[in-house]
Amino acid sequence: MLFSIYGLISASFFMSMDAVDVAFTEAAVGAGVSPLLMLATLASVGRYQKKPTDPEIPKVALLLVIITGILLIIGTLDMPAFGAADAPAHQHVAPRYIKESPEEIGIPNMVTSVLASYRAYDTLGEVVVIFTAGIGVLSLLNFRRRRRNIHLIDDIIAIDEHKILRIVSKILIPPILIFGLYVQFHGDFGPGGGFQAGVIFAAAIILYVLFFGVKYAHQVVNQTFVRVFSAIGVLLYGSVGVVSLLNGKNFLDYHVLAENPTTAQHIGILVIELGVGITVACVMILIFFSFIENIEKVIQELRK
């Protein structure tokens, strides 16, 4: 819970430093989803660690950690002072982005144009990382287990207990989904974009899972569909790059997509953000589902 408060407060920091997009992401991820995942982990592994029988200090590891820490601290000595105006980051590319991005890309939100156009490689990398994380969680938690014995979570918590909550969440879920779409396609003009929209979408599904149980959620959100689409998002992103390669330009050069360079940038950014949104939403849903199923498994084992 304190973690979530930290998310909220740091988002207001970002807010006051004018980094609206960062605040948006922190709002969606830091305050909402990550505390939930932490608690889900706690719920499935138990709160306390068993004391090791022979406490032996891992000397090599400790030494390694100390050396790495010292090296990192030495590394920071070379970095310019925090907020210095003559830092390389402010001299090299930032003025160019600020000056020319309105003409070159033609969208008002500069963060989106840097994220999805100038730095499209990096963003592709991020999407792949998210996808890999999803695969990792899946393979750790439920790769072996075919879904044989999934009972309702309502089995554990009687479903009639939360009538008011269920009705309110029923009312809330459709507007949340619509708002997610708005965030997805509004990224060109204001804060928003694929990452945030994906998380908001996933949050709606999580709300559903929490109150209607995993079984019903499985009927609403087809698992195979989610799995396939988490890959399709990455593919969509990559295929834009391949299309521009095949047309004789650099990887992820959007100018091949249309005659007018600004229109081409618009199309490219739209498609890429869509890919990001799909992947993020699907991976979040997948991770949450595997956590919940894992908790149910643990509880069932406890009952036996």
Binding site: E161, H162, I164, L165, V168, I171, L172
Partner: peptide, 20 residues
């Protein structure tokens, strides 16, 4: 609208969970 919907619901849920 959102605040009017969610904050009483959250209070209710909290109170109920604590009581249970």
């Amino acid at each position: 609208l959102l605040v009017l919907f969610t904050s009483p619901t959250a209070s209710h849920a909290l109170g109920k969970a604590a009581w249970k």
